[in-house]
Design a protein around this nucleic acid. Structure first.
Length: 1007
RNA sequence: GCGGGUAUGGUGAAAUUGGUAGACACGCCAGACUUAGGAUCUGGUGCCGCAAGGUGUGAAGGUUCGAGUCCUUUUACCCGCACCA
């Protein structure tokens, strides 16, 4: 009986689906284990072999934990709102819902082929109304909450109203917008309800405010900070500009400290934690207030070096700072305005790109030093960022390189005094930016102190004179939550006189309206502005036609939609109780499953999804909906599987750039001639490095020039001819990697079948002679359709089987490491499965006997049990596969066909290769699935050895081995070793100075 | 600039607390069988060397009887943040 994966795999996949083998129960005697994958965005391209890597790893853990007696929750779903579906809709007019559904069907088909043990009965799709109903609900909860700094948690806004009614807001310590006005209880109670609403909005955890946002004109939407990479949009790489817009924001900054502290309690990779720490960007220091001379204005700065307060030489404000226009003197007005305008014109990216150019302008105004009352000139400079701290700095050139550079650049100009040095250090060449190794001088009461004591003392003194206080600053900004897109969650919000009102939760979901086109409206409204049925009737409590808007009973609805991260910030909770219509999940389910024990996904979500999820989790905990502080206890980032691209190399000519060359570069390039000559990497390299011989060169030139002549003869009269150039290069040309899986050669025929553009191609071999086969070049790149290096898991499953795919993906290397895919190596694991099968079957059928196995067989099995158990616990899946191979090789050698060995072996293999394991299990005569059978338990007794092959080293160099009983003492070992003739040969009569014997390990003779 | 990570044969990679470097595979070489297949099986394979032997984990130094592993210095590459006050 031979092993045919085709029959086995389909059969068991069907069995699992029909029997709901992996459906998790929400209560059980067993301990719970929640293992989660980052759910995919279903793109039109389908899965490639990189996508399932993490899913295979998590599936192995899920299956293992079931064997170990856990009640395992292992769900899967789709993050199905998103930009690609919308852009496709814009191009084709197809409803995103339709394409999304099609893509999901394709994904599901591909996933099913790999044999995952997902509990599909709990599938979620973020774009389904019964899911986003609860995303909207959470938004409402955030709106109805505020954050109390003292209690360090969120509370219902209704409680805040009570506080305001009783005592106003002067004595409360709450997270809110900058510059909220102070009021007493009496004043509050006298405010109109509109005014009260306006004030409350400044405290809500999601709020509507005019803020500087990242506007991406090409995408027609705002983006969150984490959606921008190097000043351009993460998707598409479009430029992003700053723009003031009224937008919904999430007050994630309220949670900055808890998000930072929580990192200490979770088992995540150091790099992700570090990314989050960077993103949160905590810095401890002080805020200092400087009075602007002879004016009512004050400038507040944040500094991490209050100890350098006496070194303040000038101050710098960001060009966008609100005081700039108010404090500038008439004499400086023109210069300042010109500078501000020039800066505003530059994009964020430009400013980032040229950080070395120093620019700035003096405002003419002075501030007073809080201790010395000395005048301090106030400058504007674009090295100060409006978005960080207060957008203003106290410049201490002696201790800060940027201030130092700025001071030197404007040295001698009006308003730039001599640098004050407050360190007992030389600053003639550069600033002294160290935080240790100095003593403060010229610093009044700080003289003689160091960084630590000086900081403490300076803050104390500042507090005494009310000139400043200790302050912790965070880089983390509130997250913009509005997107000007169609394919996202609509807000449950309507507007009465411009003030946002929440729709009562019992009317949710507010379903995404139909629109005729998915682009913004002509007057610049988001796509939902195209909807005709998008108004809220407060009497009938339903969405109604926009024509009925009268701002009395029918009001306009919010036109923005939620960002992509909304739906993914809580989905792991929905899996716990995916079909609950009354709650986002029942209390019982939430209490039972708590949080995710193991989360596997890519590291690209470090500062996006993973931070927002922690934020929402903490919020929902504060409001008593859930109990865990953190959503994901352990996180593993699978490395990217890279594609092995294959290239042939094509000649093209470069026109001589000399006197004759006319026109710009593009013109010249357009006159270059791309030939149909393809060569191997080896030859291409020779031409790149100009190490070819002249003979070869002239042969190729001949063919090339023939082609040029031919091309010229086919040109129309007016077209300019290609000249016979003498200068040529090769360009790499991607060919489909699937054409060259098992060999490095590609034939002309293969290429012509693959793509018609190769019909006139000529291959040239290393001797300059036409050939029909050349060796391709290889390079590792990210897998992508355009690079023709995508390997489809379906193809692997069809050819080798899902079990082979699963084993091979694990066998490639450590899970967290990026690694190139190379299908050539797959025969190793494919052969392993065949070998495994042959332990159980010969040509006639099952050969398993009930005979008692030998000690060696037990040893092989138990070694494997031990190794595989440890490996899974340590997520070291690649070494497990090696161990399986070792075990099967050993058992085959031992001709083992013993049930007592082969039965546990089938269970051991089942997390990795579940289909073959199920088949073996059932062929061994068992009913039901192997997936819940107890995992074999390792027993030490089978591994106990009586002898050890000792390595014998001389001066640390291993010379020979000697087999000795393990119960010998060191002295006995020494005696035997010393009398061994090989020892005598090595020593050549010398006596060792020292003999080191570690029983059970090594023998080392020194001297 | 700051922070995180990686570096071992032709290739992917193993190596618990420091204890026989290169397990397991791919590839390659040789052979067996054969219905000549990209099947199966056996042996070999870090490098130099006929061998004895030498040498070898990015580089240099150190600790140790013994270092891929620990310490110091350094180089290259990858990732994150970045005029963050």
């Amino acid at each position: 009986m031979k092993y045919f994966h085709e029959q086995i795999e389909a059969k068991w996949q069907k069995y699992w689906a029909e029997n709901q083998t992996f459906a998790a129960q929400n209560n059980s005697e067993k301990p719970k284990y929640y293992v989660l994958d980052m759910f995919p965005y279903p793109s039109g391209a389908g899965l490639h072999v990189g996508h399932p890597l993490g899913y295979i790893a998590s599936d192995i853990v899920a299956r293992y934990k079931r064997h170990k007696g856990f009640n395992v929750l292992h769900p899967q779903g789709y993050d199905s709102f998103g930009l690609p579906a919308e852009q496709y809709a814009i191009q084709t007019g197809q409803h995103p819902e339709k394409t999304t559904k099609e893509n999901i069907a394709r994904y599901r088909e591909q996933l099913d082929k790999i044999g995952f043990s997902f509990d599909w009965s709990r599938e979620v799709r973020t774009s389904n109304p019964d899911y986003y109903k609860w995303t909207q609900w959470i938004f409402i909860q955030l709106f109805e909450s505020y954050y109390c700094k003292q209690a360090d948690k969120a509370f219902p806004i209704s409680e805040l109203v009570k506080v305001f009614e009783a005592e106003g807001n002067a004595n409360v310590d709450l997270v809110c917008d900058d510059g909220v006005e102070l009021f007493t209880a009496a004043e509050w109670n006298a405010f109109s309800s509109e005014k009260q609403q306006e004030i409350l909005l400044q405290y809500r955890l999601t709020y509507l405010a005019e803020t500087e946002v990242n506007w991406c004109p090409a995408l027609g939407t705002v983006l969150a900070n984490d959606e921008i990479v190097n000043g351009v949009s993460e998707r598409g790489g479009h430029p992003v500009i700053r723009k003031k817009m009224t937008q919904w924001s999430m007050r994630i900054s309220a949670y900055a400290e808890r998000l930072l502290q929580g990192l200490e309690t979770i088992d995540w990779s150091e790099s992700i934690k570090e990314s989050q720490r960077n993103w949160i960007g905590k810095s401890v220091g002080a805020s200092v207030t400087f009075q602007v001379s002879s004016s009512k204005f004050q400038v507040e700065v944040f500094t991490t070096r209050p100890d350098t307060i006496f070194g303040v030489t000038f101050m710098t404000l960001a060009p966008e700072h609100e005081l700039v226009s108010q404090i500038t003197t008439p004499e400086q007005k023109a210069a300042v305005e010109a500078y501000v305008e020039a800066t505003a014109k530059r994009s964020e990216r430009e400013r980032m790109a040229d950080v070395k150019t120093i620019s700035g302008v003096f405002t003419g105004a002075y501030a007073e030093h809080p201790f010395t009352n000395e005048p301090i000139p106030i400058w504007i400079g674009d090295y100060v960022l409006a978005g960080y701290g207060t957008g203003a700095v106290m410049a201490v050139p002696c201790g800060d390189e940027r201030d130092y550079a700025f001071a030197n650049f404007f040295k001698g100009k009006e308003g730039m005094p001599e640098i004050k040095n407050i360190f007992n250090q030389d600053i003639s060449e550069a600033a002294f930016a160290e935080k240790s190794g100095f003593e403060l001088v010229n610093s009044d009461f700080l003289n003689g102190l160091d960084y630590k004591s000086g900081t403490k003392k300076a803050i104390e003194e500042l507090e005494k004179i009310k000139g400043g206080k200790a302050k912790v600053n965070y880089r983390l900004r509130d997250a913009v939550f509005s997107r000007q897109r169609y394919w996202g969650e609509p807000f449950p919000v309507y507007y009465v006189n411009g003030m946002p009102q929440m729709i009562d939760a019992k009317h949710l979901p507010i379903i995404l309206p139909e629109v005729e086109k998915y682009l913004p409206t002509e007057d610049g409204q988001p796509p939902l502005g195209n909807a005709t049925h998008w108004a809220w009737d407060v009497e009938k409590l339903r969405v109604t036609s926009c024509e009925l808007i009268d701002n009395k009973t029918v009001f306009p609805l919010e036109l923005n939609t939620m960002p992509g991260w909304a739906g993914s910030s809580w989905y792991w909770m929905r899996y716990m109780d995916a079909h609950n219509e009354n709650e986002f999940a029942s209390q019982d389910a939430l209490n039972y499953w708590e949080n995710v024990d193991l989360y596997i996904g890519g590291s690209e979500h470090a500062t996006g999804h993973l931070l927002y999820s922690r934020f929402w989790n903490k919020f929902l905990k504060d409001r008593g909906f859930i109990t865990p502080e953190e959503p994901f206890k352990k996180l593993i980032n699978q490395g990217m599987i890279l594609g092995m691209s294959a290239f042939v190399y094509r000649f093209y000519t470069i026109p001589m750039m000399g006197k004759k060359a006319t026109g710009n570069f593009e013109d010249v390039v357009s006159r270059s001639f791309t030939s149909n000559i393809f060569v191997s990497k080896k030859l291409a390299d020779q031409f790149e490095n100009e190490t070819y011989d002249t003979d070869l060169w002239s042969k190729i030139m001949k063919i090339l020039n023939q082609q040029i002549e031919l091309a010229n003869s086919n040109l129309k009269e007016k077209e300019s001819k290609f000249t016979q150039f003498t200068n040529f290069k090769t360009i790499p040309y991607h060919v489909d990697v699937n054409l060259v899986n098992s060999s490095d050669e590609i034939s002309l025929n293969q290429l012509q079948n693959w793509m018609p553009e190769f019909n006139n191609a000529i291959f040239i071999d290393e001797n300059g002679i036409e050939t029909d086969k050349i060796i391709v070049g290889r390079e590792v790149e990210k897998m992508s359709k355009s690079k023709y290096n995508v390997v489809n898991p379906d193809d692997i499953c069809n050819q080798y089987g899902a079990d082979t795919l699963r084993l091979y993906e694990m066998f490639l290397g450590p899970l967290e490491q990026a690694k190139p895919w190379n299908t050539a190596g797959i025969t190793g694991v494919s052969g392993f499965l065949k070998k495994l099968w042959r332990l159980y079957f010969d040509d006639n059928g099952l050969i398993v006997t009930n005979d008692e196995p030998t000690a060696e067989m037990y040893k092989s099995l138990h070694k494997t049990i031990k190794k595989v158990t440890e490996d899974i616990e340590n997520f070291s899946f690649n070494t497990s596969v090696s161990q399986f191979m070792i075990c099967v090789n050993e058992l085959a050698q031992l001709k083992c066909n013993h049930r007592k060995i082969l039965e546990p072996l089938a269970i051991l293999v089942s997390p990795y290769a579940p289909h073959i394991a199920e088949e073996l299990w059932s062929q061994l005569g068992h009913k039901g699935s192997v997936s819940t059978v107890a995992f074999p338990v390792f027993e030490e007794k089978y591994l106990v050895e009586s002898e050890k092959e000792y390595p014998v080293s001389f001066n640390g160099k291993m010379r020979f081995t000697i087999k000795l009983p393990l119960d010998l003492t060191a002295a006995q070992i020494e005696e035997i070793v010393m009398t061994d003739e090989r020892t005598q040969t090595q020593l050549q009569g010398r006596t060792p100075n020292k003999v080191i014997i570690v029983p059970g390990k090594i023998i080392n003779l020194v001297g």
